[in-house]
Design a protein around this nucleic acid. Structure first.
Lengths: 149, 149
DNA sequence: GTACAACTTCAAGTTAACTTTAAGTCAAGA
DNA sequence: TCTTGACTTAAAGTTAACTTGAAGTTGTAC
């Protein structure tokens, strides 16, 4: 398969495939002229990479898990750590969501006079709630995939 | 108050305060020589900004909510939208966390042979799980705040 | 044989939210 | 008066994960 076919089958842009190869996340099995040749195994590897990304692993971490070969050495401890991290994130986001819902139909004349809102403000100022980078990044990603013509 | 005092009281670095002023998120009330002077109200404004960031609003969105004056025009609809967004994120993260926990003590000889793991792989490859940018960014932030000497 | 779409490389650009650096200003204490 | 430390500006650097652009090559359909 050449790069266009891999891109089509996996949904991953060719530029990304080249980038992944450069970072040793995937391998091409050879060249036809200048053109890279991939075998079908790359699709499974791309699925693994997508899974790792979804779980919040960086490309570098994923590169560590997927050896250079096709073997896969995933550390259970690493998985549990990541799950713990997600637990924390989920808790913070849940608190924030509840706060937003409350603020949306709170009857106080101004949000600044709602005690619950003020409490949330204090928590945020103290850094207890994180900086909410998740949704912002997700939005950025959506923007990129729907360019303005 | 000069910028150092605001930084100390709020925990927000002076460089960030200047940056926020440039973006019209906060205002200084004047100068003493070259030096900016702030009044105490800026602390409440910074708490609001922190809250907005925690909720996942961008600085530009926050600038829209905090008028140039000290009034605060928060749109309840906007809050509900953000809460909906968070609901989605929470659902995705929860699915991922459960998948990770399962993978961590799944008895299949290789993860590639665990049906549940493979299902998760498929979902991730199809883009149903997002790209997990939240935890990566959080890690980056932690790294920055604990520099290597 | 030639046009062309699909590939190639390498370098630079993108994003948000800051931080860092360099060079300079200035008030106050010794 | 001199030094020191906290401030100032403007511009460039940082991060990850890509994308884009320019300039060149090539397999294949006509």
């Amino acid at each position: 398969m050449d790069i266009g076919e891999v891109a089509k089958l996996s949904g991953v842009p060719a530029s990304t495939l080249r980038y992944y190869e450069e970072k040793c996340l995937i391998r091409s099995v050879g060249r036809r002229g200048l053109r890279r040749l991939f075998n079908a195994g790359v699709l499974e590897r791309l699925a693994l990479i997508a899974l790792g990304r979804s779980a919040g692993f960086s490309l570098d971490e994923i590169a560590g898990m997927l050896g250079t070969q096709d073997e896969l050495r995933i550390d259970r401890h690493q998985l549990n750590e990541k799950a713990d991290e997600l637990d924390g994130t989920i808790r913070r986001l849940t608190a924030m969501r509840d706060g937003l819902r409350h603020a949306a139909d709170c009857s106080a004349p101004s949000h600044l006079e709602c005690p619950r809102f003020r409490r949330l403000m204090g928590l945020a100022a103290a850094g207890a709630l994180g900086d909410g980078s998740d949704s912002r990044k997700a939005r950025a990603r959506r923007r990129r995939s729907t360019p303005p013509e």
